[in-house]
Amino acid sequence: MRESPKKPRSESAPRAELFAHGADIGVRGIGPTPASAFEEGALALVMAITDPARVAAESAVEIRCEAPDLGLLFLDWLNALIYEMAVRRFLFGRFAVRVDPSTGSGHRLFARAWGEPVDRVRHAPAVEPKGATLTALKVEFRDGAWVAECVVDV
């Protein structure tokens, strides 16, 4: 598990992190754009379950979300992934996200997630995400990078 940096980093290089929470797990994506931060946030969600490098990009699922603000859009994005993983018995390891700027009806996300069915021996999933929560939910430009983060109930 990768740790959170003790001090905020200034570079916007895309990266996924987990941060500590009492009983659950915080996921954080960092990148030069909101879309990149969302991709990395999704990767952090998978890191809470298994090593994403063990997940083969065998097939893709398309996901669309719409929300009144970027925070809720990130929440919806993670929850859409949790739903798809649950009903397909799937894990994802690669993501491509596009976030359209806010229109009158809010922000829109178009994404593709690649993965494969869960292999309980090879993936050895540590936890089962139940849902992304509003706790510590933030999507903001911070120290030169976009950061998307929240606590996921596991």
Partner: peptide, 17 residues
């Protein structure tokens, strides 16, 4: 199980909005 998780997910968001 998943049913409760999904109900919690959906209503938490709806109540927040």
């Amino acid at each position: 199980r998943g049913l409760g998780h999904q109900i919690g997910t959906e209503f938490l968001r709806e109540m927040a909005v």
